[in-house]
């Protein structure tokens, strides 16, 4: 009986070890794939962001404005800029101040 129980436990250990090993291998493979994908996506993101920063720089935007629009850019006076706050479906309009209130 004792032998039978031991053999059963060993059989169980062999089975569960192979199962767990298989699972960890799968997880490790997944982690590796995700890491590699992340690496390449991160690199792509950096490149796109870098391009975006270059193309959306003030200098470039002014170039595009001159190229595609005939309108002139007019500086806004601070008094023309208002601050709208919505609270309980009611809007309150305040002046924009240079100071933090």
């Amino acid at each position: 009986m004792k032998r039978f129980i031991l053999t059963l436990i060993i059989f169980f250990l062999i089975l569960s070890t192979s199962l767990i090993k298989n699972t960890t291998k799968k997880i490790e493979d997944e982690i590796y794939n995700i890491k590699e994908n992340l690496r390449s996506l991160n690199s792509q993101l950096e490149e796109v962001f870098f391009e975006y920063i270059y193309l959306s720089s003030s200098e470039k935007l002014l170039e595009f404005q001159l190229l595609y629009f005939e309108d002139q850019l007019i500086p806004k006076d601070i008094s023309e800029i208002k601050l709208i706050t919505t609270k309980h479906d009611a809007n309150t309009i305040e002046d924009l101040n240079i100071t933090k209130n």
């Binding site: 500086p75 006076d77 601070i78 924009l96 240079i98």
Partner: peptide
């Protein structure tokens, strides 16, 4: 200051 003022005000917000 006329030009940067509105941006500074908005950014501080």
């Amino acid at each position: 200051i006329e030009k940067i003022g509105p941006i500074l005000a908005t950014k501080s917000l």
